[in-house]
Design a protein around this nucleic acid. Structure first.
Lengths: 206, 206, 206, 206
DNA sequence: CATGAATGAGCGTTCATTCAT
DNA sequence: TATGAATGAACGCTCATTCAT
């Protein structure tokens, strides 16, 4: 196991190692998206990547670490894209609409990754049986969205409502927009996003 | 399989059998809710019920039939409750609000069942690997909700919008209200439901 | 278990009991012939007979006793038929030919029974793993056939040869004639029997 | 399954792997010969070989593949030996006698293998319940033997008879010679083979 | 670094048998 | 007599993990 060699914890990974990790993560994403979390065995992931099972064990402490890495990379990519789009905007309405639209935008180009992300969020559990990423781990998102809704209330753009309920609903609506689109690939994602933005905007309006 | 012991093909289930099936279904619900679909092995379900593994195989053709039964019973109970509450209502606004409120009402008394239901919906797959209850099987719900929203548009209560997006969002918001409440048991479910009803009502308002 | 009630071992079976045993044996024969010895579970045999599994356990000490009964009844029927045909014949050649022809005759009307018999002979094993009816249990047949061949040698009809090899070969040829006919139902069983009788007769001729 | 660990699809088997497969096949042969096909579970075969159950699953796709391999290796060895002995012979009488004698010769050194082969032939069934190697799969042998008998008829060595009946009988006689010898280890196999060759030769003679 | 090999626990399922009613 | 119910062992198989090379 790699970590045995790095008691200090932070030694930089070699280029080769980084490449292997990326390759394995990519393979994991594809396999999970295709066959689901539980059918995505290390054997299948290795086979899909064209490497031996042992390689995965060598580069990752276990299946858990691999899954965690998938989540971090995939989730990070969404956040990066969305935050870039929202940077500089000042009105709550604009922020709200931009969030919905930019997530949809990102979805279109990253179906597989987001599918895999959802599978892991929903299925990955600690050895004690408790979900590793329960809804608790959405707290960060809820806080971000709440900030937008609170801003709108402060500026007077929005009526008074419970920002937490709005954030939870907003988040759920966006996630399900993705799931619906995955199940109905001909569905017009852009139109859905626009309708959803309207919906949320009106729900907040005074 | 049960029929091994029974000459006649279609005999109604005996009282004892019905009791056992119910007991097993109940145990399955509890185990699934606690450890998740995939960790809910027949061995665990049997152990939890205090019976031997073979009993389950005796009363159910297989894990599939057991899961199907759990879904039918649990989902049926929700539908029954909600439909009863909505019966007789005529205004789309009332229907919409009642749907949200009555689902929340039911949730409060059936946490475990609904948790298990979600696990099965999300994780149960056919032998070919395809989800048994994918988002496709929400079609029925979407159609029901669409009917409400269309009614509102026809009566002039609601503005023009895409009823499908509204239905999908409504459904997601309700499901996530449940998940959020499960993760935060002190959360005020009723208040959330009321806020959500407001939110949806305003989103539709002219 | 029945035998518990009859320490003396020989109490006559009631009419009802006899009927049940016959019914179960008949069902066992049909099931074994259709799906093979190992797939012929008590459950399947009971289901095929339209009775509950428990009935079999009640009337037979176990699967072993049932199988033994099938063998005895089926084998007895063949012996009865063949011996009747051979009764009164005196020349070894006639006896030999009649044996082959009468077995074939019986086969035509008892495909299922003989198929089942073969399955049991070949597959039925004692708990220690040893075949219950190995080739050792053909000893009786071999002795009968040997008697015919010895007779022919004594009367001068036949040349000198090892009667045991002839008997073993004769028996195998007849059994395989059946197996071949089962696999090729359009095969002309009578013609095969006649050819086989010729073959054996010539093999013995001076 | 082996391929899990192997990137390239068609790589030749390593020496070690080949050794393990041979070891497992050998163990399977011994266990099958001793306790019969159906009692020969993977657990027993593994235990007999002194390895864990998983090893078998690792080297063979499943029980089916293992059984198929046993058949191929064992049957191949017989064919090889017999064909070598028959090569170059031209008279039908010689071919016939050599076939019987060389099979017997091979039997003497491969009791266990041939016993196991018989078990598999008779008991191995496809998932649909149909025998994997029924009497139908003896067709190849029948054709070979028929060729010999036809040759004899053409050259005038043999009288006219149905070559198929002769082939089926020949094959059955040889198989049963083996079974008889297995049950009676003191039986003189060579003498039996010689007697059988005489028997068949005379049965064909003009 | 990477591999192939091996492990052992756990899975869903089948089945002969036992037993109270 | 007959039944439905229940048991528990064994089955083939999957899989994350470990390890010598």
């Amino acid at each position: 196991m790699r970590s045995e060699n790095e008691p200090s914890g932070q030694k930089a990974r070699s280029f080769i190692e980084e490449a292997r990790r990326s390759q394995i993560v990519a393979s994991a994403v594809e396999v999970i998206a295709e066959v689901g979390f539980h059918q995505a065995s290390l054997a299948r992931i290795a086979q899909h990547a064209g490497i031996s099972k042992g390689v995965i064990s060598y580069h990752f402490a276990g299946k858990d670490e691999l899954m965690t890495e998938v989540v971090e990379r995939t989730y990070g990519a969404i956040a990066e894209h969305v935050l870039a789009k929202m940077a500089g905007l000042e009105s709550a309405t604009q922020l709200l609409r931009t969030h919905v639209m930019s997530v949809a935008e990102h979805m279109r180009g990253h179906r597989t990754q987001i599918k895999a992300l959802g599978e892991i969020f929903y299925n990955f559990r600690a050895p004690d049986g408790r979900p590793r990423y329960g809804i608790e781990s959405s707290e960060e998102i809820y806080l971000s969205l709440e900030r937008i809704y609170r801003l709108g209330q402060e500026t007077g753009e929005f009526r008074q409502f419970d920002p937490r309920v709005m954030a939870v609903t907003h988040s759920a609506a966006v996630d399900t927009m993705f799931a619906y689109w995955m199940a109905h690939p001909d569905h017009d994602l852009d139109a859905h996003a626009r309708e959803l933005a309207d919906l949320l905007e009106r729900a907040c309006a005074k």
